[in-house]
Design a protein around this nucleic acid. Structure first.
Lengths: 274, 274
DNA sequence: CCAAAAGTGTTGTGCATACACCCATGC
DNA sequence: GCATGGGTGTATGCACAACACTTTTGG
């Protein structure tokens, strides 16, 4: 439509594709923010996330992932960070791109339009969402922002969300499960110092199953991602556990060849090792 | 700027972020298309990719990844597919989202502007690129489209590309190396039937190192991703190798929980298995 | 002493590597 | 026969799961 510089030229002899209209596709950035919380009456922690109530159509009144249009002066990652700050008032322990969702019909909901649940729109807007996921350290969780249109939900007990956000969250959790096994993101759910039992609880919350404490200890020790602070937690009714710190120096040693991949070693699913 | 329905509302009490202008950020889709080819005089195959010569500023005359703005009637994946068809005339063996690149200064090149190499622009356009990567089966490579502004290059001997495309290709190759070890993408570089030696060559081209034929055979056999067709290749000056087929049925069995992840189990980097 | 969780030791299994060796074909 | 790659057998080491066992605290 406009003649902005494009990244690549359309080739002359593209006989086989019609001249598609290049009506603006708008770009949004949303963030799946995860943190550990305890459900009422339960002893173990589980994953929770904050959702924002929509104030307009479509999906007015329903819950949705926090996000918004990409400001032209922010990078995608910065936009995700601002969203997070807006929704929680906090700084993330970890922030990483999840996926860009761009199906034509993902928004608005044509099914609901047909059924008359919501009003059909003359010119349904096409939105592509670049979704990030983030973690909040457990020590900060209590300081999250309180707002009538923001509410935290357990990740496994979500209501029906706006747009395709249920699927997006599901995908985020699925990716997290895979990622936790070969990276060190688990630490980002905890504070500076933590016990092995706490770290194990993070893994168990993410993976949804119990882990052998003995073997877990050895795996973590072998990865050399933690340092013994020498301190202990006292006041428990059992042997006092040691406090560890995350070894940032080691952590960045094998994060990949280029800085570019810092927070972008995303996705993928390590299945059986082929 | 406009008041299109947005995915999430901006919250009222967002005191800490200034009202950013929402000038349109344009959205492009590019594709890193990879295929196996033989370099002049070499016996083994290596990875090649097609590039398109830019016809306008910025970076006029330089080579760039094939791509273009996202047509409003196509999904991201469809757009990547059309790009591929335009650049090669072929259908991909595999197509998957790589990453969304969205730094503010990634385009145009302010450095080159400062140095006077290219003209400064009054209103530098902000472009976010969703990049896909694709593979072309070796059997199709000879049928690729010929065009004066399209040229194939060995992936390890690229010239300086437009924008940040060198980094993008580097990242694609890095991701491919990790991915090849736990998924079955390697097959997508070959035709329907292939020998184990050919499959091994794909792995070697991607990983950049030789593999033990004996152990490679066992790994592939253990993965049960291939079926013996019973046929053999004759005419070699040695024992005739068997021909195998890719087992599609098995392949989709463990691709993840939801269809959504079909072609999107992207990124991530399986390092030491922590 | 007892309960409970921290922390250690021991053993078996499965998988990846390394490499010796045999097989089948063209020349 | 011999060269060449296809294909098999086997030993070694390591990562990991299972689980018995010891340690250290509070009550």
């Amino acid at each position: 439509m406009t003649s902005f510089p494009q990244e690549t030229e359309k080739l002359g002899h593209s006989d086989d594709h019609h001249e598609a209209d290049h009506a603006a596709v708008s770009l949004a950035v949303s963030t799946v923010i995860l943190a550990l919380r305890r459900k009422e009456g339960e002893s173990h922690h589980s994953l929770w996330l904050p959702l924002v109530r929509r104030l307009r159509e479509p999906y007015k009144g329903q819950w949705a992932l926090p996000g918004g249009p990409l400001p032209s002066d922010q990078s995608l990652e910065q936009a995700a960070g601002s969203t997070l700050k807006r929704a929680t008032g906090l700084v993330p322990g970890y922030l990483e791109q999840l996926y860009a969702f761009g199906d034509v019909q993902r928004t608005p909901d044509y099914r609901r339009m047909r059924e008359g649940v919501i009003e059909p729109q003359v010119d349904p807007e096409r939105v592509v969402s670049v979704v990030y996921w983030a973690s909040i350290p457990a020590t900060d969780v209590s300081h999250t922002r309180v707002h009538e249109n923001i509410k935290w939900f357990p990740a496994d007990e979500l209501p029906t969300l706006a747009f395709d956000h249920n699927e997006i969250v599901e995908y985020a959790l699925y990716r997290l499960q895979n990622k936790v096994e070969y990276s060190r993101i688990a630490h980002s759910f905890l504070g500076e110092e933590f016990t092995l039992a706490q770290l194990r609880e993070v893994y168990e919350a993410i993976l949804g199953r119990a882990l052998d404490p003995a073997n877990f200890r050895r795996q973590i020790a072998a990865s050399k991602s933690i340092i013994d602070t020498g301190k202990r937690v006292e006041g428990t009714r059992h042997r006092p556990p040691r406090l560890y710190r995350y070894d940032h120096a080691r952590a960045f040693a094998d994060q990949g060849p280029l800085g570019m991949y810092r927070a972008s070693e995303t996705q993928d699913v390590a299945q059986h090792k082929f």
